[in-house]
Computed example of a mutant assay.
Amino acid sequence: MAHPRMFDDDDPVLGRLREITLTFPDAAEKVSFGIPAFYTTKVFAYYGGSEKLDDGYVRHGSSVLVLADPVELPALLAEARCYLPMYLGVAGWVGLHLTDHTDWDEVRELVDTSYRLTAGIRRVKRLDDGR
Rank of each mutant, 00 (worst) to 15 (best):
E29G: 09
L110T: 09
W93G: 04
R123L: 15
L67R: 15
H101F: 14
H101P: 01
G15T: 01
D26P: 10
D54Y: 00
V66Q: 05
L14C: 07
W104C: 14
C82V: 09
M86R: 12
L96D: 03
I121M: 13
F7S: 06
D10T: 15
K42N: 11
A27S: 13
L22D: 09
E51G: 02
A28I: 08
T41G: 07
V94D: 01
P85M: 04
E29L: 06
L117N: 10
L84H: 15
S62M: 02
D69M: 04
I20P: 13
L14W: 00
R59T: 13
A119F: 13
H97S: 10
G49M: 09
G89R: 03
P70Q: 02
Y87G: 04
R81V: 07
P4D: 06
A75V: 13
G92E: 04
G130C: 03
D11C: 01
F44Q: 03
I35H: 07
D10P: 00
T23C: 02
Y46L: 12
K30P: 03
P36R: 05
T21E: 09
Y46C: 00
G130A: 02
V64P: 07
F44V: 03
M6A: 13
S62R: 15
L117R: 14
H101E: 07
D129R: 10
L65R: 04
V90M: 07
R116T: 10
S62A: 15
A2I: 06
E72C: 09
A78Q: 14
E19A: 15
R16M: 00
Y115I: 11
V64Q: 11
L127R: 08
L67W: 05
L84I: 07
L117Q: 15
L65G: 13
V64L: 11
R122D: 14
E109R: 15
I35M: 13
V64G: 12
I35C: 10
D11L: 01
D55W: 06
L73D: 03
Y87P: 02
T41M: 03
E106Q: 13
D55T: 14
V94F: 05
D26V: 04
A75M: 13
S114E: 04
V107S: 12
E29W: 11
L96I: 15
I121Q: 15
D11E: 01
V71K: 08
Y83Q: 02
L96F: 09
K42M: 04
L77I: 01
F24P: 12
E51F: 08
F38Q: 10
D103T: 11
D100Q: 00
T41Q: 07
M86E: 08
L110Q: 05
T118Q: 11
